[in-house]
C-alpha cells in the first residue's frame, strides 16, 4: 500500500513537470516548428532535405522507405540485428524452460481437448483459405513498399502473422510442417546476411558501407538512382525474412513453453 502512495507521488511529480514543459512546445501542426523547419537562423531541418531530394536521389516516391533503407541504412540494419538477437534470446530462455521436468505439462493435456474437435472445422477451413491471401498481400506489401505504405517490416510481420494464424486455427504442427524450426532460424540469419551483404558488396566496389549507388554495374540499372532503388528492395527483402522468421519463432516458443508441442 505504501509503495502505491510513493508511486503516485513520483508519477504526479514527473507528470506535472512534463505538463509544465508542454507549454514551451511548438503548437501541434505548426509547419515552422524546429523539428519540421530547422532552428531559426541555423541550418534547415534534415527532414526538408529528405522531402525535397529523395526522388532526385533514388527515384523512390515513398520517402519513409527511402529514409529507412537508404539514408538511415545503418540504423535499420542494426534494428534487424536486434530483432534477430531477441529471437535467439527467447529461444534460449524458453528451451531451458521446456526441457526440464515440468509438473505443469499435465495442464497442457487438459488444454489440448480441442484437438480433433469438430468445432474446429469452420475455423480451420476459413483460415486455410485466408492464409494464402494474407501471404500474397504480404509479398505485395514488400515489393510495392517504394510506392505505397509498406516495406520489409510490415510485410515480414504479415508473413509471420499468417503462420501464426495457421498455428492458431489448426495446430502448431501444421505451421511447423511448412516452416520448421531449423528453417526459420536459417531464414532469420539469411535475412541479416542479405542486408549486410549489400553493404559489403558496396564496400568491395570502393564505396562506403551500404552506399548503394555504386552497385549500378551489378544490378544492370541505368544510373545510380535506380541502383539505389533496387538495392532498397533487396534490403527490404532481407528485413522481411528476419522479421517473419523471428515473429513466428517468438509465438511458437512462447505458446508452448519452448517445447514446440501442444500449442495454444
Amino acid at each position: 500500500m505504501l509503495s502505491k502512495v510513493f508511486a503516485t507521488i513520483a508519477v504526479v511529480i514527473t507528470g506535472g513537470l512534463l505538463l509544465y514543459g508542454v507549454y514551451d512546445f511548438p503548437s501541434f501542426g505548426d509547419p515552422n516548428s524546429p523539428p519540421n523547419a530547422g532552428v531559426e537562423g541555423g541550418a534547415d531541418s534534415v527532414s526538408q532535405y529528405f522531402i525535397t531530394q529523395t526522388y532526385n536521389d533514388s527515384k523512390v516516391p515513398n520517402i519513409v522507405t527511402a529514409v529507412l533503407a537508404d539514408y538511415r541504412g545503418y540504423d535499420t540494419m542494426f534494428e534487424t540485428v536486434v530483432v534477430f538477437a531477441a529471437g535467439i534470446a527467447i529461444f534460449c530462455i524458453m528451451r531451458s524452460l521446456g526441457n526440464a521436468n515440468d509438473p505443469a505439462r499435465e495442464k497442457d493435456e487438459i488444454h489440448s481437448f480441442t484437438h480433433g474437435d469438430h468445432n474446429r472445422i469452420i475455423i480451420g477451413t476459413t483460415c486455410r483459405i485466408v492464409v494464402p491471401i494474407v501471404q500474397i498481400f504480404a509479398l505485395y506489401v514488400i515489393a510495392h513498399g517504394h510506392y505505397s505504405p509498406g516495406g520489409g517490416f510490415q510485410g515480414g510481420v504479415l508473413l509471420g502473422a499468417s503462420f501464426i494464424l495457421l498455428a492458431l486455427s489448426s495446430d502448431l504442427n501444421a505451421a511447423l510442417k511448412r516452416l520448421s524450426e531449423k528453417n526459420y532460424f536459417a531464414l532469420a540469419a539469411i535475412g541479416v546476411l542479405i542486408y549486410a551483404g549489400f553493404g559489403l558488396v558496396a564496400q568491395f566496389l570502393g564505396a562506403n558501407f551500404l552506399e548503394y549507388g555504386v552497385l549500378q554495374p551489378i544490378l544492370f540499372t541505368d544510373g545510380p538512382e535506380m541502383a539505389r532503388s533496387h538495392s532498397m528492395l533487396g534490403v527490404e527483402i532481407g528485413v522481411a525474412f528476419t522479421v517473419m522468421a523471428i515473429m513466428f519463432s517468438i509465438y511458437a516458443n512462447l505458446s508452448t513453453r519452448g517445447t514446440l508441442k501442444n500449442g495454444l
Partner: peptide, 12 residues
C-alpha cells in the same frame, strides 16, 4: 514545398 508533406523522419 516541404510544408505540404508530413515530416517523414519521426515516422521512420
Amino acid at each position: 514545398n516541404p510544408d505540404k508533406i508530413a515530416n517523414p523522419l519521426p515516422h521512420v
